Computed example of a mutant assay.
Amino acid sequence: MTGLTTSTMVILEGGPRDLPKRVVPGPILDGRLKIQFRGGYEHFEATDHRRETPFGVLTVYEWTLRTEMAE
């Protein structure tokens, strides 16, 4: 995660338990985030919640749904 600051990172809650990363670069504009995982996408949306992490206080993004990739 070289070059990232805490203002560009978010923490993910919900979704697959085995999602490899829970602190990820966040979206810049719309408050939505799509993570590619196991042949599909896990969708997360911003909440009003914040959580203390080793990276500082980050916005919590909650899982909303999964979509499959088109073949």
Rank of each mutant, 00 (worst) to 15 (best):
residue 1 M to W: 09
residue 2 T to C: 12
residue 2 T to G: 15
residue 2 T to D: 15
residue 3 G to F: 00
residue 4 L to S: 15
residue 5 T to I: 05
residue 7 S to F: 11
residue 8 T to F: 08
residue 9 M to F: 08
residue 9 M to E: 14
residue 9 M to C: 12
residue 9 M to H: 09
residue 9 M to K: 14
residue 10 V to S: 06
residue 11 I to H: 01
residue 13 E to I: 08
residue 15 G to T: 00
residue 16 P to A: 01
residue 18 D to M: 05
residue 18 D to L: 08
residue 19 L to F: 02
residue 20 P to Q: 00
residue 20 P to M: 00
residue 22 R to E: 05
residue 22 R to S: 05
residue 22 R to H: 00
residue 24 V to D: 02
residue 24 V to Q: 01
residue 25 P to M: 06
residue 25 P to A: 10
residue 25 P to D: 05
residue 26 G to W: 07
residue 27 P to M: 05
residue 27 P to W: 06
residue 27 P to V: 03
residue 29 L to F: 14
residue 30 D to E: 10
residue 32 R to C: 13
residue 35 I to G: 01
residue 35 I to W: 07
residue 35 I to D: 06
residue 37 F to G: 08
residue 37 F to N: 09
residue 37 F to Y: 11
residue 38 R to T: 08
residue 38 R to L: 12
residue 39 G to E: 00
residue 40 G to H: 01
residue 40 G to S: 04
residue 40 G to L: 02
residue 41 Y to G: 10
residue 42 E to A: 08
residue 42 E to Q: 11
residue 43 H to Y: 09
residue 44 F to Y: 12
residue 45 E to W: 09
residue 45 E to A: 13
residue 48 D to Y: 10
residue 48 D to W: 10
residue 50 R to T: 13
residue 51 R to E: 10
residue 52 E to P: 10
residue 52 E to I: 13
residue 52 E to Y: 11
residue 53 T to N: 04
residue 53 T to E: 06
residue 53 T to V: 04
residue 55 F to I: 03
residue 55 F to D: 09
residue 58 L to G: 08
residue 58 L to K: 05
residue 59 T to P: 03
residue 59 T to W: 10
residue 60 V to S: 03
residue 61 Y to V: 02
residue 61 Y to A: 07
residue 63 W to I: 00
residue 63 W to D: 06
residue 64 T to Q: 07
residue 64 T to F: 01
residue 65 L to G: 13
residue 65 L to Y: 12
residue 65 L to S: 14
residue 67 T to Q: 07
residue 68 E to P: 11
residue 69 M to H: 15
residue 69 M to E: 15
